[in-house]
Design a protein around this nucleic acid. Sequence first.
DNA 1: CTGAAAGCGCTTACAG
DNA 2: CTGAAAGCGCTTACAG
Lengths: 340, 340
Amino acid sequence: MKRPTIADIAQRAGVSKGAVSYALNGQRGVSEATRRRILAIAEEIGWNPHSAARALSGAAADTIGLALRRPARVLGFEPFYMELISGVEAELSGRSYALMLQIVADASAEVEVYRRWWGERRVDGVLICDLRVGDPRIPVVTDLRLPAVVVGGPEGVGDVPHVWNDDAAALVETVEYLAALGHRRIARVAGLPDLWHTRVRAGAFQGACARLGVRHALTIGTDYSGEEGARATRRLLSGEARPTAVIYDNDVMAIAGLGVAQEMGLSVPGDLSIVAFDDSPLCRLVHPALTALARDIPAYGALAARQLLAAVAGQSVGSVQDATAKLVPRASTARPVSST
Amino acid sequence: MKRPTIADIAQRAGVSKGAVSYALNGQRGVSEATRRRILAIAEEIGWNPHSAARALSGAAADTIGLALRRPARVLGFEPFYMELISGVEAELSGRSYALMLQIVADASAEVEVYRRWWGERRVDGVLICDLRVGDPRIPVVTDLRLPAVVVGGPEGVGDVPHVWNDDAAALVETVEYLAALGHRRIARVAGLPDLWHTRVRAGAFQGACARLGVRHALTIGTDYSGEEGARATRRLLSGEARPTAVIYDNDVMAIAGLGVAQEMGLSVPGDLSIVAFDDSPLCRLVHPALTALARDIPAYGALAARQLLAAVAGQSVGSVQDATAKLVPRASTARPVSST
DNA sequence: CTGAAAGCGCTTACAG
DNA sequence: CTGAAAGCGCTTACAG
């Protein structure tokens, strides 16, 4: 059976293809009665618009693109992305927009994918995650005039619209809380150092520690994987002037850190307080439950998608700030047993 | 600046559009010299094929579709999907195929998405995950003649090609191992009951327990979320005839179960042995590290993608079995302290 | 309100 | 080896 086209509908309805097109798209130019008849026929014969034909006639692709650049082993169990994607999807599917996803290995592949998608008119716009310092995607989308929204910022985004939240404020709140509990040796197990938000968090951490008299404020960089989170924790807990509190840049590393503390016979929170940046159900399910900086990540993704759709529609969207992560104290943080 | 088309290339090269098309697609019909000249011009002016135009001329969409139906809160932190997707991607991107992703709320939306994608010619084929008993997607892809590969089976797939692995064998191996350690009260915290693989695992579990003299072999169904895994574990550990070992249908629930045991003051593995179906880095990072049934999920996804691409190319692909999950014993399983 | 026609950017027989 | 042309399924001015 051949796929039905508007020509088939036109024939059945005894009108021109043009009339069918108007009827189907809710344009004026056909009478109400004709429109209803055409719609009924389209429904009956199971007609669907051929997306390529529409696109070729200048219509939008009704698709947005997302390229993710992280090693599969990290992506696999970073809840962040799937949560972000589910929020993006929630916004898109209501408007029958599709999501094109590609996982890439390096920066050049990432840029290449965006360039190709746009060249092939496969997407109407793209989302940019994991903004890096000197990120090559910013000049590329600017040059191509490819509608884009950065999930991140506000620094390093050039003139590209973006949605961001104030990681610095969240980190300051955390350090203040730990300092108030009496911690004077606080470490940070950070994510990839060339990401903007890692840099922002680092600055906020150092600043707050200096201001609050936290003498030992060590940061160890990782690739966000649980393995490196565990290794960093072992290093921290094996050195002298062991920290009494550690802030992790994601939940997976925080859980790995908890595992290391338990393996080394340290009690949490007695000997070590733990805070996770980003709260996932896992943080509540381990024992003790982890104090975490909670954001509504699906909502963040949905906001980004809305902004991108607006940008695609030609609106100027600029910079939008999403809610700051909230500190949710749980059982993994307490006064240090022996304040120094 | 207008987007370059083959007409621009033809003009510059002083040949016809047809010749350009042949040259660009590696077809015969142009001399080597002309081909090289055309390729050079295309490169120089930054030409990209307009995917819609190609698709309209009967070419493939070079895209495969995947609709995922699970609540966002589960998707978010089930490593399985992201790992599967990264494996699929690895196979696709080498051949410049794109992945269309949509997260849907229910079965009808899922079928609707596949129907629409196919009607709109947006995808050349689809992957079907999370096969359910009486899954409506099977008759739909069959009717539409939409190339499809089920990630699952071999039961309940009708005539649709599929890749599967032998969950039953993996579960039997696990029960035998636990029984050999001396466990006689083994429980199972299962995933969604209407999934085929849940049913297969359930049958294997009951069969193995009966055969091996495991008197208490209780199964509790969940939605795969950590919350429900924790709740099920509390129920199991609060009842009389408490199990001495629990097998969880995913790693997230296993970690939640470990948390509950610790919260209730039970030692793992002394009072309770824990096994996770599917191994993620998290299983190694918690303390004690969890015994797990490990599969190479990216490889599984890559295999599924390869089969789908073959099906799209018109080959008959049938049923392919992937490697059976391997039991990786770690610190969370041991002889029960007091054998009954 | 409706019809006939051009055009989007490719591919592909069909002639030369 | 190359050119001219039709066609894929839509949309959209342009006439009536």
